[in-house]
């Protein structure tokens, strides 16, 4: 039985700054990292492996240098890593991304039965949280997002029970396998790689699946398979560092001004 973890290599957006004069992004020296949300997905799959004896396959779609991130997954204990890379996959929106990932999972399923697909909640560069549901819908798997605890996996009955966190409440949900679960960062604390595993991962094999291997129709993937298009990009207006009123002489006025600011921003519901 297989657990497939989907991860993405992303530019570390917290390091991206906007040039205040030209309004362009300063990307110099911004490293590519494993999407932080995906580290929880990977950790959870490794815990499932330890608890139920699953095999863990990690897949990632991206440029060839995504290999670095996949090696990190190997160093943490993934059994198999697959890089989905082809220029035909480039420029994909979430719809076209979920296409490639779902097809890769199907392909993996031909070798070994897939029980669970685990995704991170969202990526830090896209912030959409749409790829997980996209994969589940395409594969016809049960879909459980916002999972903050996997309560039980019953391999005989092919069921999984999880806790989902919703606004103001939690729910315990059970569904049949195979299932796609998207996890929150509260679900676990990702482990740190052991050095012998890191050394092993440095030159362990990373399987490459390009579109020759995948054989997908070009109008369903990449830029051509994307339903959305970006028309333009601009830098947001930002206000930073405003000292409001004179809080020491007149706290009432300062408080009033602050409340006004919050109301303007629609952040204070009265």
């Amino acid at each position: 039985m297989l657990v497939v973890t989907c991860i993405k290599q992303v530019p570390d957006t917290t390091q991206v700054k906007v040039d205040p004069i030209t309004g362009t992004l300063i990307r110099e020296g911004v490293p590519f990292i494993i999407n932080p949300f995906d580290t929880y997905a990977l950790e959870e799959s490794l815990r499932l492996k330890e608890k139920y004896g699953f095999h863990v396959a990690v897949i990632s779609m991206g440029p060839p240098n995504t290999e670095v991130t996949l090696r990190k997954a190997l160093s943490l204990g993934a059994d198999e890593v697959i890089l989905l890379s082809d220029r035909a996959f480039g420029g994909a929106d979430t719809l076209a991304t979920s296409m490639v990932l779902a097809e890769a999972i199907k392909k993996l399923g031909q070798k070994e039965e897939v029980a669970i697909v685990i995704c991170g909640r969202q990526t830090i560069d896209g912030d959409t949280a749409q790829v997980g549901p996209g994969i589940a819908t395409r594969l016809g798997y049960s879909q459980l997002t916002l999972v903050d605890r996997i309560e039980n996996v019953d391999l005989k009955a092919k069921k999984i029970r999880v806790r989902r966190r919703l606004e103001g409440r939690h729910e315990i949900v059970e569904t049949t396998l195979p299932a796609m679960i998207a996890v929150l960062r509260e679900i676990n604390r990702p482990r740190y790689p052991k050095v012998p595993m890191r050394l092993f991962a440095q030159d362990a094999p990373v399987t490459l699946w390009n579109n020759k291997v995948m054989g997908l129709r070009e109008d369903t993937i990449g830029l051509k398979g994307s339903a959305t298009q970006v028309r333009k990009i601009f830098s947001p207006q930002r206000e930073r560092g405003e000292i409001i009123g004179d809080g020491s002489k007149n706290p009432q006025v300062a408080a009033r001004l602050l409340i006004d600011r919050l109301k303007e921003k629609n952040l204070l519901s009265l």
Partner: peptide
Amino acid sequence: MNARVPDELLALFENFEQR
């Protein structure tokens, strides 16, 4: 060898490695 470290060091190590 064991990656057995206090929780607060996990983030620290990542920070050093990444940034």
